[in-house]
Simulated scan of single mutants.
Amino acid sequence: MRVQAFMFYGCALFFLATDIVYWLWSGDWTGTTAMALAVGLAGLIGFYIHFTIRRLENANGGPLYEDDPEGDIADAAGELGFFSPHSWWPLFVALGAAAVALGMVFGWWLVLLGACATIMATIGLVFEYYRGHFAH
């Protein structure tokens, strides 16, 4: 996965070069700022992937299976993690976030209501498997 990190670094460099050329030719601050944000976003994603890969390599004691040119598909077999098959909480988080967004249009009272709903739904999502029938 190290290749993906360098792809995002390459995107950040490309956006930086085009941002400089755009700024010199147009003098438009709006487009220049948008391109600068694209540079920062691509660099941020590349840095996160690079940092995560380094941490995973240190935990596994070597390169990842995806980075091994001699590796087989069966090398990466096994459990990948736990994924909730039936959770309704992401829907409620999205509805609360939509209420916050609509509250910015219709009134501050809906922002407060949506923020409370989003916080409660996020708590429910995080602690879903700590109580009740599905507790570990």
Rank of each mutant, 00 (worst) to 15 (best):
A135M: 10
T32I: 06
F83W: 00
A5K: 02
L16H: 00
F92E: 08
S26Q: 11
M1A: 12
F51I: 00
A117N: 06
V126L: 08
G31I: 00
D68T: 05
H136R: 15
A99C: 11
G78D: 07
A38H: 02
A34F: 13
A117L: 14
P85S: 10
G132Q: 06
W29H: 14
Y9C: 03
G78I: 05
I20G: 09
D67I: 13
F92D: 08
W23Q: 05
T33W: 03
A101S: 06
S87N: 11
R54K: 12
T122G: 09
L24I: 05
A121I: 07
W88M: 10
G46A: 06
A97K: 07
L113Y: 08
E66R: 09
Y129R: 13
F47E: 04
P90C: 00
L13T: 14
G114T: 01
V100A: 06
T33L: 10
F15E: 04
F15V: 09
T32A: 09
L44A: 13
A99P: 04
L112R: 05
Y129L: 02
F8A: 02
S26C: 06
I119F: 15
I49M: 11
A94L: 12
Y65K: 12
P90S: 02
R2D: 13
W89R: 01
V111L: 01
M7T: 15
F82L: 06
L37I: 11
A77Q: 12
G107Y: 08
H136K: 14
A121H: 03
F6G: 06
G124R: 04
W25D: 14
V39D: 02
V105Y: 13
A5R: 02
F82D: 05
M7R: 09
L56S: 02
P90E: 00
F47A: 03
F106E: 12
R2I: 15
Q4E: 15
G81K: 09
T30G: 13
D28E: 06
T122V: 14
P85K: 11
T33F: 09
V111W: 02
V93K: 01
I119W: 09
G27E: 01
G132S: 09
I123T: 05
I73G: 02
G124Q: 01
L91E: 01
W89S: 05
E79S: 10
Y22P: 03
I20N: 07
V126Q: 02
E70M: 13
F127W: 08
P69F: 01
C11W: 14
P85E: 05
G96F: 13
A17Y: 03
V100E: 00
D67W: 08
L91I: 11
